[in-house]
Design a protein around this nucleic acid. Structure first.
Lengths: 234, 234
DNA sequence: CCACACCGAGAGCACTGCTCTTGACTCGGT
DNA sequence: ACCGAGTCAAGAGCAGTGCTCTCGGTGTGG
């Protein structure tokens, strides 16, 4: 009986929580829709109108516009990470990197404003809370796993070592990915991830306008360069 | 006498124009100051307050907030281009590329919000007018010149050719930089510029937070990789 | 000398994020 | 069964925004 009471009160409590969570999800969905239409300057009143409620009611769920944006950012990180993790394991390490990169690019093309929210210029007053870093690293680890596995199976050539503070930071990075991994390889992987990021952002933010129309081929071209430089070998 | 009259009327005309230009410059300067403080969401009323005038008076000089932003963007492109062009000519092509890249990075670190304005996520409703492309290409040409000169002096190894539409676009790019230049080299130069852009943006937009503190060394590390991959040789 | 173009200021519109208060509703414990 | 506590939505309101329009004043060009 006591356990029943307990579960009852739990289910009642979780019911409230569930409704609240559903409402939060609806708000986030509406906000995402508005985000897709008019970009980062999201209007709380507009999403409230969409949901048929007063703007002030929205503050019951998100304390501020920044908090809503933070929730959207975390969701975006997670969605991107999931897209990267869903890529099937291709036979060779270079292929794996390139395919994950394509998955990242495809996600960004499908959700350009969310990509901008996450990897674009930071909102002035906004400071990303530490809640985001967990989700933010998912996609990076998807790439790191490729390099780490290549390192263990001898499919990654390590370049010349790096010393100084940068070498130590590369070492710390390597220990995170795979204990014993060559620090300079971890450094190149990190730089490679930034190249992925830069290539996608360049395309999305209009740097290729009037210059390159074969976007996918150019991205492939860049990524092949990236895996070459990192040292991944078939 | 007639010429004197002519110069008089000219100077009178240019006097009005000069006052107008000075006022425009003052507005832009104040706008830049506000931009540095609170980022891209620039308040016209705030800059008007700074200048001690009504916000409506500002519209005599810039038809809209977007037009002011456009003026700032053009100035930023020009300032960045000038910074890149001011780099002394170093003995070897790899050095030249890396030094220009450092100049770009230094300018971006000194003017982070203007960098974000130009290379960050585009403002939603805003569409960059064609006035900007002239200034936008200055910095790119600074890099292109390095590669083009290296190609003529045999200090650039051309990778494997690229065919298809991308190959044609690389060809068009090569013709712009140096007639007869290997298309794939132009393609790599373009990709290299995007890597510069991506590396600077990653640092500025907080992608390296809690990961890499030796920023300058890491940037140098990345740029050495870039010149290696492009095929620049000493 | 006068008309005309320009310039600055103010009022005003529709919008924004956000706060506070008010009234209704539901839920848990006695 | 009832009543206090907590939750929720709504409305009014504040300070701020981009932008328009109208109104006086001022200097220039013909």
């Amino acid at each position: 009986m006591l356990s029943v009471w307990h579960t009852d009160s739990m289910s009642a409590a979780s019911l409230r929580a569930r409704i609240r969570a559903e409402m939060s999800d609806e708000i986030k969905a509406a906000a995402r829709k508005h985000l897709a239409i008019e970009g980062a300057n999201l209007s709380l009143r507009a999403v409230a109108r969409d949901l048929g409620m007063a703007s002030s009611a929205l503050y019951r769920y998100f304390a501020s516009r920044d908090e809503l944006l933070t929730a959207l950012i975390i969701d975006a990180y997670d969605a991107l990470g999931a897209a990267a993790e869903a890529v099937p394991v291709f036979p060779t390490a270079p292929q794996r990197w390139v395919e994950i990169a394509h998955a990242v690019r495809n996600w960004a093309l499908a959700n350009p404003h969310e990509w901008a929210l996450v990897y674009g210029s930071p909102v002035p007053g906004y400071q990303a809370p530490s809640d985001t870093i967990g989700s933010a690293t998912r996609v990076i680890f998807a790439f790191a796993r490729v390099v780490a596995e290549a390192a263990t199976t001898g499919h990654a050539v390590a370049g010349s070592p790096v010393d100084g503070q940068l070498g130590e930071e590369f070492h710390a990075l390597a220990e995170l990915a795979l204990p014993g991994m060559a620090p300079q390889l971890a450094g190149r992987a990190m730089a490679g991830w930034i190249q992925v990021c830069g290539a996608v952002s360049a395309e999305l933010f209009g740097q290729l306008a009037n210059t390159i129309d074969a976007r996918r081929e150019f991205f492939e071209f860049q990524m092949r360069g990236t895996v070459d430089w990192i040292g991944l070998r078939a």
